[in-house]
Design a protein around this nucleic acid. Structure first.
Lengths: 125, 125, 125, 125
DNA sequence: GTGGTCTAGACCACA
DNA sequence: GTGGTCTAGACCACA
């Protein structure tokens, strides 16, 4: 469900936050759906529970998740089932721009990059 | 020459390191070329000189840059003028994979992502 | 464990780097052993934590030390318990050569130097 | 006459200062003897003349050298021809202590170190 | 508790 | 002018 890259330089808790946001925006985590418990996730990714907890707390503060005493957190109401395509696209626009900037610094052509993206889609379906 | 994103979560000095690596791989910084001075870069990006210096030192340790007492650092020898396309592509493979993973989590289609990438190329040429 | 000479002209962080290398080579810091924490060492030697941190980071880049998020650094694997005598001797060969060169410039005899070394061994056992 | 180690961490001008002090203490540079010119030394060691000049100035301030308009600097009076053995030995005591400390950290025996010193004497006679 | 990043600022060595 | 070292101090991420 989540993929964490500890060596990427991006804080682990931020990686979790962003991934939950995406899964909610896409409807893969629908309104009311339960999230994996802090412990479970922490174990699975060999990470301290506090790291996951910090991510969940931030998402709760944003109003995206809801806490329930003694029960797993759930996706809060008011999201609809799936955000509009343009809203979803906007969530990865910064990364796309940075990737293109990197490709430019590597003197790669749009075709080179398109081919790389294509291969990446096929890699882990 | 460099673009820094202070809010991206990635340490500034790492952003510099990666960008220098790309510019060298692409030949835009050729063997023997002098790099912008630490102070110059620091001023331009409103960043502390030590942050730039840390990036340069790491690149020197890697053997990509060379120090010259009292003079600007230069791109070390043994780089050739431009790395092979496959070597260059490999430098952004991780980012491409992460972008695709994000697109998947957003339930975007390959076509959606391709369109986004296309638009990104046109944005700041 | 470490002895720092602030007035020696050699940067403090380099002194730390070299001493860790020696303690690892001799097996006094064995594979897996935890190093004193940055703050601890900094306090003990009345030195800024960043100075120690810089030394540790360099040793990590060399592969001699390993980072563990939130925990103390340790000596990396692949060192064996003690380097061979010849490898250990090689680590101070440059200093030995410089000392002999200095003795020559002072017109001291090999016996004079040997006596000095002898006395030095006895000084702080 | 002088040996400079740019990579040793010790500032070049300090290396010059210390070596002049030793050559004077040993009588190899006697009272009134002329020193190599700043330019000459700078060229020979591929170093900026200001670096040598700084060393000479410091030695002048110490009273060890004397400046003469248009002529090479000379060793100042009042040194006698050779300092006493104990005074000369004292000049390298700190280095000897550091070498012994390093040997201890490498878990070398006094015999190991003595052998290394012996070999070092023979290396560049 | 652990290490990491960044800043503002002083001062040094070298060209 | 160039880069390097060190400090004091704030704040962050992770266990």
């Amino acid at each position: 469900m989540f993929i964490l890259h500890p060596g990427s330089g991006i804080p682990l808790y931020r990686q979790v936050v962003e991934q939950v946001r995406r899964l909610v925006a896409s409807g893969q985590l629908a309104e009311g759906a339960a999230l994996p418990s802090v412990r479970e996730l922490a174990l699975e990714h060999a990470v301290n529970p506090m790291t996951i907890s910090k991510a969940y707390s931030q998402l709760e503060a944003e109003g995206l998740l809801q806490r329930h005493r003694g029960k797993p957190m759930t996706v809060a109401g008011g999201q609809g089932s799936q955000a509009s395509p343009s809203r979803r696209v906007r969530q990865i626009e910064p990364q796309a721009l940075q990737l293109v900037a990197a490709a430019r610094q590597l003197d790669l052509s749009p075709a080179d990059l398109a081919a790389l993206i294509d291969r990446s889609w096929r890699k882990k379906p």
